[in-house]
């Protein structure tokens, strides 16, 4: 267990980070605020979106800390479009299901996979393709990060996690696919207080817990 600022010292300049959340829902907002106060820059960010203007990852973008973004839907933050047009932000766009499967694969030790999604479209340009039966498929590489910043609802002291409603989204899969997994939680409870049948992310995936200030 660490404070948010101490935990963000684990993110180095030039690191690749995964950040959970669908827009701001389920995003680790306290960790991102602390990351804003840290010195880390030239980050590669793997996240569905880059927050909203000035909020969440959008705040880090505004500070010029993000060099590269891999995600599926950036158009909800107009500042991503302007940074991309100004040449200060490199963007890799993936279909949302391909992105989440690439993260799942990264966490599960699968280096690459074929998927029909995107075959024959602009997003498959330059990628290897192969036909399986009737279906043309695209070879997609797994994604893995130095650090994952995720948000869960409750953790026990071992790091077992449960999530809340649709704030779950990318968080459990990102918890599997980074060398260091830092989790922002609303509450930390004693070991054995969580129902083993209800635990979504077992503690084997979790490195650091940061409890949100009440």
């Amino acid at each position: 267990m660490l404070g948010a600022d101490a935990a963000m010292q684990l993110v180095q300049t030039g690191a690749t980070i995964m950040v959970g959340g669908f827009g701001l829902v389920g995003a680790p907002l306290a960790l991102l605020e602390a990351l804003g106060r840290s010195g880390a820059s030239e980050l590669t960010v793997i996240s569905n979106n880059l927050g909203e203007p000035g909020q969440g990852l959008g705040a880090l973008l505004r500070q010029g800390r993000i060099a590269r973004a891999i995600g599926s839907y950036f158009t909800t933050n107009p500042e991503v479009i302007s940074a991309h047009e100004a040449g200060t932000l490199e963007v890799t766009l993936l279909p949302q299901g391909t992105m989440t499967e690439a993260i799942r694969a990264g966490g599960a030790g699968i280096p690459a996979f074929f998927t029909p999604t995107g075959a024959g479209t602009a997003l498959a340009q330059g990628k290897e393709t192969r036909r399986f039966g009737e279906r043309l498929c695209v070879l997609e590489q797994a994604l893995y990060a130095d650090v994952a910043l995720i948000k869960a609802h409750v953790a026990d002291r071992l790091g077992n996690l449960v999530y809340e409603k649709t704030a779950r989204n990318f968080n459990p899969v990102m918890a599997t696919a980074a060398a260091c997994v830092i989790v922002e939680v609303d509450r930390i409870v004693d070991v054995a207080e969580l129902d083993p049948e209800a635990i979504v992310t077992p503690h084997v995936f979790v490195d650091v817990l940061v409890e949100r200030a009440a």
């Binding site: 599926s72 839907y73 950036f74 158009t75 909800t76 991503v80 479009i81 991309h84 047009e85 963007v91 766009l93 993936l94 279909p95 949302q96 299901g97 391909t98 029909p116 999604t117 995107g118 075959a119 479209t121 602009a122 997003l123």
Partner: peptide
């Protein structure tokens, strides 16, 4: 998925749904 006259920076789940 791609809106005319705008940079291609969003696809979301459109391709996955259409495909699957």
């Amino acid at each position: 998925w791609a809106i005319p006259g705008q940079p291609i920076l969003g696809v979301g789940g459109a391709m996955d749904l259409l495909c699957g």
